[in-house]
Design a protein around this nucleic acid. Structure first.
Lengths: 188, 188
DNA sequence: GTCTATAAAGCGATAGAC
DNA sequence: GTCTATCGCTTTATAGAC
């Protein structure tokens, strides 16, 4: 429901109706509105982990074709840009909770933890691709890629750019960033 | 007030109180809530143009020192990452209206127009830096830089990363992107 | 655990006087 | 142009029965 109407548009009564229960029961289980949002964020995180793992397992179709670390990184990032209900829901709700945290500190810690884990995963892929690159440069590249992904995500979800355009820009960004890490000439 | 409490937290009564007028007068001038938001977006755009122009005028301090197009681009992008009330307000409100448009199509056209103008300005700087680069590559680079800026902006404003870190990541991104455009070997 | 009923407050918008 | 007063609806949260 957060993905459909946003945090601001989430009504406890609507939620209860859709769940087929009473509002009282919702408060019984989640305590209050912030508790509801906290559980929603946890749910989103679990679900993202789930489909990330699922993609990893069924990822290498050909035995050894196109199975480079660069492709693995691209594939992982592009997971967030799919027009599947589950993915779109997750991206929308995640972005909304992030945007909401600008004005409500409530969920910041949880968001920071999830974001750090996510950045670390991207950094792992970058290290696999460029083992010789200095750690700070890798971290910075991972942060730029994830921040770019979030920026593109909002544009996609608000209809400002089409899905394929977002995917294309992200793909080229991976190329730009990984090309950069491979060039030892420039600092940082 | 949007920068302080978000679109979702904006109350017409509060707005009227802060303006020292009645709620009735607010409706008289802005028609309704959406009208209020539309005017706010216009105000933000005008104000951004204002301080961008002001920065351009007082930008080159030394006669010809450090006045490269690369520095001009960096300076322009970094304008959005300053801890001045006016800038922070503008960034916060802009980000909030953008995030809000994911669920409310109302302001999408205005946002798209403003975003396109903004991307074109960045592209102009890139062309000045790399006149030989193909137009699609320049446009894509400009879109990546502005999308990254928006992603970093949310992280900064929600306290996930400090201001200086956002500035540093943006600076290096400019380096990565402009370095890329200067390399004619790779397509796109 | 679950429901009904309702308190209590908030909020967008309008009417009508001046 | 501006204000006061208020309608009418929505929403969070709780009380208390079952």
């Amino acid at each position: 429901m957060i993905a459909r109407q946003g945090v601001r548009g989430l009504r406890v009564a609507d939620l209860a109706a859709e769940a087929g229960v009473s509002t009282g029961l919702v408060y019984y289980h989640f305590k209050d509105r912030p508790g509801l949002l906290r559980q929603a964020l946890a749910f989103i995180g679990d679900r993202a982990d789930r489909y990330t793992l699922a993609a990893d397992e069924q990822a290498p179709p050909g035995p050894a074709e196109s199975a480079g670390p660069r492709q693995a990184l691209e594939r992982m990032l592009l997971l967030e840009f799919q027009d599947l209900p589950e993915v779109r829901e997750n991206s929308t709700a995640w972005g909304e909770l992030r945007a909401h945290s600008v004005f409500d500190p409530e969920l910041r810690e949880d968001l920071a933890a999830a974001g750090a884990a996510w950045t670390a995963e991207v950094a792992d892929h970058l290290v696999a691709l460029h083992p010789e690159a200095p750690a700070p440069a890798v971290t910075a590249a991972a942060e730029r890629l994830t921040a770019l992904l979030e920026g593109l995500s909002v544009r996609w979800l608000s209809g400002l750019i089409p899905l394929e355009h977002a995917r294309e820009l992200l793909r080229t960004a991976v190329g730009v960033e990984t090309g950069r890490l491979g060039c030892p000439g420039e600092a940082n």
